[in-house]
């Protein structure tokens, strides 16, 4: 049997926002499913808000919200408002609270024009925003967001990120977020966990993660002459491996890309032979740093 998550151990303070980062198949969605009670771990213990999520206690479920970017809890052929009204009753929200929250959500997420339209007639962005509204309408303590901005335009992403940050600051909403759009994580989360093949590779604050990633630069080595580039690059690769124990994160025709620690730049520079290669060094942004990190792990 294949274990999709191993040695996972972490906790989250109330009112914090934790982002899960990882390549496809890293176990992010499985972890979210375990945390919100959809899946039961084969071993270990999970406590969320003091409950065992796998028991799906009603009191626990009333305190959480869960948005899955690819799925919907709204009734496809009915107006959005009908779904919201129905869930109001399921969650036992009073009429006054419902009206107040709905007004706030409609304004913050720009939903005024979609409330009375059938879900099937909404764009993806509108649907996801309605899904978020549905999952925040009962004022949960904790919300799970699994790829909430997949396929959304920049405006919709901005509205969602802004509103989540507002809820966190004002009402102390705790957030678990997975997203392949690292902008979501950067904008909403103060803590991050990086998963790789079911194991935690990083667990700390976003500041720590940024500091760690800033220590590296991207180094692109390109051959000057097109003839015999394979042999030339192979020779360079061997030299890098021998002196720095570094492998390229990507190899294209006539080009090698490395992620190198800034402290090693001088040493690496000495390996270059003028006239044979050109060298480009650039600082990595957060997204590229993470991509390079994933690439380096993939080659392990």
């Amino acid at each position: 049997m294949h274990a999709c998550l191993t040695d996972i151990n972490f906790s989250l303070r109330p009112g914090s926002a934790l982002g899960f980062i990882g390549p496809n198949g890293a176990g992010k969605s499985s972890l979210i499913k375990i945390l919100c009670g959809i899946q039961k771990p084969t071993s270990g213990s999970v406590r969320v808000l003091g409950f065992d999520p796998s028991k799906r206690d009603r009191q626990f479920l009333k305190q959480i919200g869960a948005v899955f970017g690819h799925k919907t809890s709204l009734w496809w052929d009915l107006p959005v408002k009908t779904s919201l009204d129905t869930y109001r009753k399921i969650y036992g929200v009073s009429n006054i609270d419902y009206s107040e929250r709905l007004s706030e959500l409609v304004e913050a997420l720009n939903l005024a024009n979609v409330l009375n339209r059938p879900v099937r007639n909404l764009s993806l962005g509108e649907r996801v925003k309605c899904e978020l509204a549905l999952n925040l309408m009962h004022a949960p303590t904790l919300i799970f967001l699994d790829e909430p901005t997949v396929g959304l335009d920049v405006t919709s992403k901005y509205e969602i990120r802004k509103y989540l940050n507002y809820k966190r600051k004002v009402e102390g909403l705790s957030i678990f977020l997975t997203s392949h759009d690292l902008g979501d994580i950067e904008s909403c989360c103060e803590e991050a966990i990086i998963l790789d093949r079911g194991r935690i590779r990083f667990d700390g604050s976003m500041r720590e993660l940024n500091d760690e990633l800033k220590d590296t630069v991207q180094l692109t080595v390109t051959t000057v002459a097109q003839e015999q580039y394979e042999a030339v690059l192979e020779k360079f690769k061997q030299k890098m491996q021998a002196s720095q124990q570094l492998d390229p994160v990507s190899e294209a025709n006539e080009q090698l890309v490395y992620v190198v620690s800034t402290s090693k730049i001088t040493t690496v520079y000495e390996l270059f032979e003028p006239g044979i290669y050109t060298l480009e060094i650039k600082a990595l942004d957060f997204e590229n740093s993470v991509v390079n990190l994933f690439n380096s792990w993939a080659s392990e």
Binding site: K33, C36, G37, I38, R56, R58, L61, K62, I64, G65, A66, F68, K71, T72, S73, Y87, I90, Y91, F144
Partner: peptide
């Protein structure tokens, strides 16, 4: 279609 997840996280 994996839609059960949406039901499992609701108190119903």
């Amino acid at each position: 279609q994996g839609q059960l997840e949406s039901f499992f996280v609701k108190p119903l």
